[in-house]
Design a protein around this nucleic acid. Sequence first.
RNA 1: GCCGCCAUCGUCUAGUGGUUAGGACACGAGGUUUUCAACCUUGUAACAGGGGUUCGAUUCCCCUUGGCGGUACCA
Length: 489
Amino acid sequence: MVKTRFAPSPTGFLHVGGLRTALFSYLFAKHHGGKFLLRIEDTDRERLVDGGIENILKSLRWAGIKPDEGIDLDESGKVIQTGKNGPYIQSERLKIYHKHVDRLIKDDHAYYCFCSKERLAELRQIQEANKQATGYDGLCREMPLAEAKKRVTAGESHVIRMKMPKTGITKFTDLVRGDVEFKNELIDDQVILKADRFPTYHLAVVVDDHLMEITHVIRAEEWLPSTPKHIELYKMFGWKPPEFAHLSLLVNEQKQKLSKRHGDVAVRDFIDKGYLPEAMVNFIAFLGWNPGDEREMFDLDSLIKEFDFAKISKAAGVFNLEKLDWFNREYLKKMPSAELIKICLPMFRDRRYEIGDNDWLGKVLSLEKKRVTTLVELVESIKFVFEDTPYEAQILVWKKSSKEETKNVLEKLVNCLNKISVQDWTKTGMESRVGGWMKENEFGTGNVLWPMRVALSGQKNSPGPFEIAEVLGKEETIERLRMAIKKLE
RNA sequence: GCCGCCAUCGUCUAGUGGUUAGGACACGAGGUUUUCAACCUUGUAACAGGGGUUCGAUUCCCCUUGGCGGUACCA
């Protein structure tokens, strides 16, 4: 059975690149009827951020990605662990790593290293000055084990390094990149256990992926050069390595790796701005993948159905917000009224708006949903329904009209509208009644509709006058028209 | 420096030896229209360069260039 995993470090908010990696891992697992596991890699204690795990989980759950095993959130939003291969937080697995490191030392696949950080820095400086490949020179590699153990017992600070073979090449077939090979001699004797007794990524990832029965390691391209180290560790333990798939990176418009310094990259930011998860998922999936034909609206289920590494692109993708905006507008337009109301409700409450029944609220949202990009913009754009909007009298006057004429037209319009019953107070009802009235009196459309619309919305640009009038109701509509007339005096 | 990955419109991409190089976003023009959107029609725009292989290369191979990643007791 296929089993994939996403293994973030809780060092802050989930990054859109991370979301994409998680998504592809999830899609691949689900496409093959497999399982998706979530593990936390917190071996770097200096970069930990409070609430990091919750943040990551919330963003994933927002996108619709739910782990089958490992770390998850319960209904109250508390972090929980489920599954029989736990714990799923690396800092809780130290004993497991120590046991495996001991085995490597015993089998002469790893050794104690007492080199100080200062010596290592100096070494690198010399190598750089001589234009050599940088890396550990293996000073401690041949130290007799007995001597090393004596120094350890004496309390000397040390790390454990793996013994990379000095000859040969490591080859593997990457699911997205095909055959890749590296010369072993150029690969460092990587530190696998730090002086603080915490493992490095390289050791922890191999041990955990094996113990947690991961079949496919799907991760970002930045890990490609360290894959030979991992394969070597699998060999040392006598384990069968999983399949590897290294996804291309996401870059910004300047083609640099996406980072927090350059604008919005945290999924949290997009949630807060009112982007829809469906749009984000669709957009991000299409950054490096497509179904091979011209369809482009895909929800999570149809992505699962069609996802395939064969169609994934190898080049880095530019994270371009314009396309995201387009997807968001499309999904906003398509969203059923009831659902839209549900997700906007908290924002209405924040603004302490008096909201009527759902039928009415649906009409209010429909006023602007084709004109905005995000949910936040949507709620902001219909502000004029709930609040008085100050505006200059001058904008009531249509370009082909005058102040006097506008005032006159509005007065007559009020009379006309007054005769319309509350039952007929609908967009279509008013369209025919006012439309007929305009024709009879030979009023130009712009002469009437422009000032009416501005009077009702307080804005130069807005939805049409009749749809606003329907939403406002007869009383409020006439009230606003009278206010406008007063402004023109 | 060394190692590796990558390379089609501005962006996301289709294309797997023979195509008028297709689509989407963005942009431009026109239509609709009381405004802004939406909508419809339409336009501009790409195979990084040089060598091979081949009857024929966007497609296969090599080199160059460029971009990116790695080179940590970070992940």
